[in-house]
Amino acid sequence: MMGNRKEITATLSAALEKKINLYNDPRIYWAKEVTFDYSTNHAVRVDYMKFVPVNNSVSGIEKGDFYCYEVKSSVEDFHSGHGLNFLGDYNYIVMPEDVYQEVSKEIPYYVGVYTSSGGELECTKKAKRHDRTRPVSEMLLMMFRSVARERRRR
């Protein structure tokens, strides 16, 4: 995947948004740039998050799963120390195929990978469940805040 870091990130992000919600279905709950602990010295931001409830009952929502996605455009970006925030039940890194070839042995066993070699995203490695440490209420609130921020930007 050729281009500068900003272009590659934009291309991967657009492909991921399409993958997360291909038909713009309002029943797909997702947000981008979701910040946690924002009023502290150790705020963390997840590039994309999706929530999949079991159903719309109270227990179905409580038992729902969070999917977190981190977009990495280069080996340098992967090693930058920023943005490998795996807060979900299922966590993925989205990167160009050539970057994955270089860093594959550094990716935690439970983290999945989506790769692109210029077009569609392909699931190269499936994520394994990783019990999250944050409650559903906090996760949903932070997603809600991010969506509200995006709405204000328009």
Rank of each mutant, 00 (worst) to 15 (best):
M2W: 13
T115G: 07
V54P: 00
S104T: 01
Y92K: 10
F36G: 14
V46R: 00
K32I: 06
G81L: 00
V44P: 00
D47R: 01
V99W: 04
T35H: 02
Y110E: 13
W30T: 01
S116E: 09
V58H: 01
V58R: 01
D65T: 11
D65E: 12
S73L: 02
L87E: 13
F144W: 06
I20F: 07
A43V: 11
S59G: 01
Y48H: 14
Y67S: 05
V34A: 10
S59R: 02
V103I: 15
E33M: 14
N85K: 05
S57Q: 00
H82K: 14
K125W: 04
A10Q: 12
F36P: 13
D47S: 04
V58L: 06
S116R: 02
T133E: 15
I93H: 01
G112I: 02
E122I: 14
G64N: 01
A148I: 01
D77E: 05
S73G: 08
T133K: 09
Y110A: 10
A148C: 09
E122V: 13
D77Q: 01
N21D: 10
G88W: 09
A15E: 10
D98V: 05
Q101S: 09
G88C: 08
N55I: 02
E102M: 04
L140Y: 09
R154L: 08
H79T: 07
V113D: 00
R27M: 04
G118R: 06
Y110P: 13
S116T: 03
P26F: 10
H130G: 06
V147H: 03
L84I: 09
N24R: 00
E62I: 03
Y67Q: 06
E76P: 02
E17C: 10
S13W: 12
N56Q: 03
Y114M: 03
S73K: 01
R154I: 02
D65K: 15
N41Q: 11
R129W: 05
Y23F: 07
N56R: 03
T124H: 03
